[in-house]
Amino acid sequence: MTVAVVQFGGSNCDRDGVRALEHLGIDAERVWHEDGLPADVEGILLPGGFSYGDYLRAGAMAARAPVMREVRAAADEGVPVLGVCNGAQIGCESSLTPGAFTTNESARFQCEHVHCRVERADTPWTAAYEEGEVLRLPIAHAEGRFEISEDRYAQLEANDRILFRYCDADGNVTDEANPNGSTGNVAGLLGERESVAVLMPHPERATLPDLGLTDGAGVLYGFDPSLRS
């Protein structure tokens, strides 16, 4: 399993992603977007950061980079694709997943730890957890508020495509536990295939024991479930 961590101008979590994946025993390499995907790519991570300085909208310019055509084609073939933070914004902007991530309700950058409830435990990205389990994960974003129309949100719920919701430490999904005003407290969701997912919290920053949190490791095992203990 080799995961391509796609680096755009302004990406700043690509090295974090590689280090976290390698810590779990998953081969990973940074790939500059202009070079395209390796022919033997087996997984794709769209990392966090500020691609193109969040010009226009966060993720909007990166979503139109030629490499994203390759990413979408790979996703259609079942290659696991995970978008984190700015990568989640890119994922939505490129229609890997529905909806959009917009300016936080607070209208400011927020860098803190939050709690997220696992809504499904039967996907590659959540099989390491129990349904209803509460994770503690870091966020660092100014445009992390998930927005979607009412009818499309209803479709997400009906099709069980919501992976994580912001909650309190006891798993209660409340307005107070929602750090950015996301519709339905959504913190992560699936694409049309369960092998494609995006989330705003950073699992790679909650994988290395030295950082004090390891709750995010289970998400990254979605690239290679055989390594999950």
Score class of each variant (00 low, 15 high):
168 D>Y: 13
56 L>G: 02
56 L>D: 01
225 P>D: 10
122 D>M: 04
196 V>P: 06
164 F>H: 10
46 L>I: 08
45 L>Q: 07
115 H>G: 14
64 R>P: 04
39 A>D: 11
58 A>V: 09
5 V>Y: 00
224 D>T: 15
49 G>Y: 11
166 Y>K: 05
146 F>K: 05
103 T>F: 04
37 L>M: 03
171 G>N: 08
103 T>C: 02
61 M>Y: 12
197 A>N: 05
214 T>N: 12
48 G>S: 06
82 L>H: 05
196 V>C: 07
1 M>G: 08
103 T>W: 02
70 E>H: 00
120 R>L: 13
34 E>H: 10
207 T>D: 04
217 A>V: 13
164 F>M: 12
50 F>A: 09
202 H>N: 01
180 N>W: 01
114 V>R: 07
203 P>E: 08
225 P>N: 12
104 N>L: 01
213 L>Q: 15
40 D>I: 03
203 P>C: 09
70 E>I: 00
196 V>I: 14
225 P>E: 13
78 G>T: 07
20 A>S: 13
108 R>H: 14
39 A>L: 10
191 G>K: 04
37 L>C: 05
146 F>T: 07
111 C>L: 09
173 V>F: 01
187 A>N: 08
28 A>P: 01
36 G>A: 05
19 R>H: 14
107 A>Y: 11
133 E>I: 14
142 A>R: 15
185 N>W: 03
227 L>E: 06
162 I>K: 01
190 L>G: 07
211 L>P: 03
153 Y>A: 09
171 G>S: 09
105 E>H: 00
195 S>C: 07
159 N>M: 12
118 V>S: 08
107 A>H: 10
73 A>I: 02
164 F>Y: 15
90 I>Q: 01
192 E>S: 14
195 S>Y: 07
170 D>N: 15
84 V>Q: 09
214 T>L: 14
174 T>M: 04
3 V>N: 01
198 V>T: 08
48 G>M: 06
90 I>V: 12
193 R>S: 15
220 L>Y: 10
154 A>C: 06
207 T>Y: 07
156 L>W: 03
